[in-house]
Structure formats: C-alpha cells, structure tokens
C-alpha cells in the first residue's frame, strides 16, 4: 500500500514543513521585536518632547544655565558662521555672474544673491553647520554625562535633569540659531559685494540698494520663522540622543554621530515643509 505523504507546493514533506514553520515563527518573532523597538523608540521620543515642553513652563527655570548655553551656542559659533557666511555669498556671486553676463543682467546679481541667501542658502547652510557643531556637542556632552553617572547624580540631588540640561539647551538653540542665521545672511551679502568687485566695480551703496530693492517681506519673514524650527530640531535631537545614550563609552560616539546625522536630515525635511507652506502664501 502506498504510504501517504503530504506534499504541498514549497513544503516537500512533514519534516521540511516543520522546519519551515519554525523558520517562519523565528522570522515573525524577529519582525515583531523590530516593530516593538521601533514603536517604543517613537513613544520615547514623544515622551521626551512632552517632558521638555512641560518643563519649559516650570517655575524653577534655570536662567543662568540658559544664558551659559546661549553663550556656548551663539557666541562660540560666531567664527565658524562668519567664515561660512562670507564664503557662501562670495561663491554664489562668482558662480552666478557668468550666466547673468550672458543675458546682460549683471545689475540683477545683488538682488538675486541676496534673495537666495535670505530665503534658502543662509538658513539651511547655517542650520546644517550648527547641526554639526552644536548637535554633536550636545550629543557627546550629555552622552558622557550619562556614562559617568552625572545625570543620575543630578537626579539624586533633587534636580530635574530635563529642566537643567535639556530645556536650557533646546531653548538656547531655538533662540540663537535665528540670530546666527541673520548674522550669516549679513556676512553673506558682504561676501557677495566682495565677489562682485572681483571682476566688476560696484560701490557698497549701489550694491546694497540693488540688493535690498528686490527683497520683499515674504522673502524674509517665512525664512526667518523656519530658523526657529531648525534650532528647536537641532536642540531636541542633540539632547535626545545624548540623554538616551547607552552606558558604554562607545555610545557617546554613537550619540554624537547620530545627533548630527538625524538633525541634518530633519533640518532638510523641515525646510521642505516650510517651502511648501511658503509657496501657498
């Protein structure tokens, strides 16, 4: 008598079917764990942001630490932002000039460069530079504080670490980055004037009157508002990555690195959203 053997397409025999089911179960568990860790990470981010917002309105605001962070983020970034701003204006002008010369529209150069600096290049380049400098600094500092139990020590001495470390840094970044952007825009226009004088001859007053003659309120205002969001994103990501760093020294590097990568990416995404909203105005 012929022995019955269940043969299903793809599952040749009972023994194979058992292995197949086990493999399938393992993969299911693996995917469930991945999904769980993703959702718990998302929940942890929202919890962190809500704690930060709640503590921002606390009566015991750490004003001295906030001022110290404003100094660290704002004043200590000035040399880097100065160089970046001047080079940004200079390069934009040098690159754009030949194209405008072909159309006999060199007089539009100051206005074109100024608008592109104010609307896009100034805010985004400054925010990306700050994401690198400030985001990594926050990630590494808070990460190493976590590793060396300084955050625990703060908590044990009845101080809320979110209020002292996170709120002050996020608010300082939110306030200082718009100021740095304005500063970079100003230096970028100066750099542009210098660039215009490499191959041409244009006076300072003429250049600036041509530059600002084309700038309207809607060129400046939405671009300025989005810089507050850039600052908040850089501060939040830097602090979150540092605050949730693991216990080993390796995690400090990972926190700093991922703070830079994620905050740079989010700056670009926020910029995309801001451009879409501005476009509707």
């Amino acid at each position: 008598m012929k022995k019955f053997s269940p043969v299903i397409k793809g599952i040749p025999n009972l023994q194979g079917a058992k292995k197949h089911v086990i493999r399938l179960s393992e993969k299911t568990i693996e995917k469930t764990v991945e999904a769980n860790s993703f959702f718990s990470e998302v929940a942890s981010v929202f919890l962190f942001i809500s704690c930060t917002i709640k503590e921002s309105f606390s009566r015991d605001f750490e004003f001295r630490e906030f001022l110290r962070q404003c100094f660290q983020i704002g004043y200590k970034s000035l040399p880097l932002i100065s160089v970046t701003g001047i080079i940004m204006g200079l390069v934009l002008t040098i690159q754009s000039r030949p194209a405008l010369v072909n159309f006999g529209a060199v007089s539009l150069l100051p206005g074109m460069v100024t608008i592109s600096l104010i609307r896009e290049m100034g805010p985004v380049i400054t925010a990306l530079i700050c994401a690198g400098k400030i985001g990594s600094g926050m990630g590494a500092e808070l990460g190493s504080m976590k590793v060396t139990e300084q955050i625990d020590a703060m908590e044990v001495s009845s101080t809320n670490p979110i209020r002292f470390l996170v709120v002050t840094r996020v608010l300082a970044a939110t306030l200082m980055i718009p100021i740095l952007v304005l500063y970079a825009d100003g230096l970028g226009i100066l750099g542009s004037w210098a660039g215009a004088n490499i191959k041409g001859d244009v006076t300072f007053i003429l250049f600036f009157s041509q530059a600002f003659g084309h700038v309207q309120f809607l060129d400046f205002f939405p671009a300025f508002i989005k810089t507050f969001f850039f600052g908040a994103v850089i501060g939040l990501v830097g602090c979150y990555k540092g605050y949730t760093a693991g216990r080993g020294t390796e995690s400090v590097g990972i926190a700093a690195n991922s703070a830079v990568v994620l905050s740079s990416l989010l700056v670009i995404i926020v910029d995309l959203i801001a451009v879409q909203i501005t476009d509707m105005l």
């Binding site: 060396t148 139990e149 300084q150 908590e155 044990v156 101080t159």
Partner: peptide, 28 residues
C-alpha cells in the same frame, strides 16, 4: 523631597565636568 534627605556617593564620583569644585558643591 525624599531625595533631599539622602546623600548618594557614586562609584565614579560623578562630579560635573563643566563646573569647578566650588560650583559642584553649590549646585545641590
């Protein structure tokens, strides 16, 4: 309030690196 009554000496010391000794003591 309960933590105010407890002192905790950490294994690593856990001094705040960005502060001087005086600021470390003034902090709590």
């Amino acid at each position: 309030e309960m933590r105010k009554k407890i002192g905790f000496l950490f294994q690593s010391g856990a001094l705040y690196d960005s502060m001087t000794v005086k600021q470390n003591l003034e902090f709590p």
